[in-house]
Design a protein around this nucleic acid. Structure first.
Lengths: 138, 138
DNA sequence: CGCTTGCTTCGAGTGCACTCCAAGGATCTA
DNA sequence: TAGATCCTTGGAGTGCACTCGAAGCAAGCG
């Protein structure tokens, strides 16, 4: 079932600059993510250089999604910690994801609301320009 | 010549503390909004105290919506400026709102995407806990 | 009358998420 | 082998949007 290892493109490893190219993040940000514990674990070469793998790219993609929801980095770090702690944290992880899910749903609702407001105003301007007489709006 | 596109509740004016209570913003923030030009105009009493009206509350509610979309304050200030400049800016205002509308729509799409990812992971955890055998995920 | 609220200026502090720098070391390329 | 390029670290700096504080005075209310 759900596994998300190897979706076709797998490569032994990626240097930090390759990951920069692939994700759009900066090398600084990638190192910072690791420093604050936002990366579950990053391999190193025998000379100490970071060797990212596909699972790291998957994780980074997931983090990118979470970032879009406005989730604070600290919460993502918490999730990464749970991951490092192993299977005993399945329940807590699931709860965290479900709470996030609820947040996302309410953000979507807020945005739909905003969209309605925007549409009303846009319609006002469109109308005012079709018939430039009296109008008042803010 | 009553202006106030009255939607029922109109009151002559509101003190800053009343607006604090009504909007949830702080007095500091309200004064700061005015200072940076984010309020189209705020009346003053003969003694110089701020007198907010319903149109100000409407504006503040609109700003609140825009804030939810992640629009930078500078852009909202721009819109407020256009408002102060009068009818000649109708076209530009409409464009600005339409650009914002497009942003909101793409943010909604991103969030739907994120929701799908979240749902897949939540389903994984639910499944893993129903049948606690092999599993692997990030 | 005295307390609360409000006004001003304006500068400093906060929290977040990066973003960049300096110093020095390793690796790749012609 | 030289030089360019990329890597490491810790720490400092940036930008945004507030958020607060202080000083000192005016106004409102009960």
């Amino acid at each position: 079932m759900e596994d998300m290892t190897g979706t076709g493109t797998d490569k032994r490893s990626y240097s930090i600059s390759e990951v920069v190219a692939l994700t759009g993040l900066t090398a600084h940000t990638l190192r910072w993510y690791e420093r604050i514990g936002l990366m579950p674990h990053v391999d190193r070469s025998h000379t100490g250089q970071r060797r990212f793998h596909d699972r790291d790219l998957d994780w980074l993609a997931f983090v990118g999604k979470l970032r879009l929801t406005g989730m604070p980095v600290a919460d993502m770090v918490r999730y990464a910690e749970l991951l490092r702690e192993g299977e005993s944290t399945f329940e807590e992880r699931q709860e965290l994801l479900e709470a996030t899910r609820r947040d996302v749903i309410s953000r979507i609702a807020e945005l739909h609301d905003t969209l309605a407001v925007l549409d009303r105003k846009i319609e006002f301007y469109a109308g005012a320009r079709r018939a430039p007489e009296r109008h008042r709006v803010r």
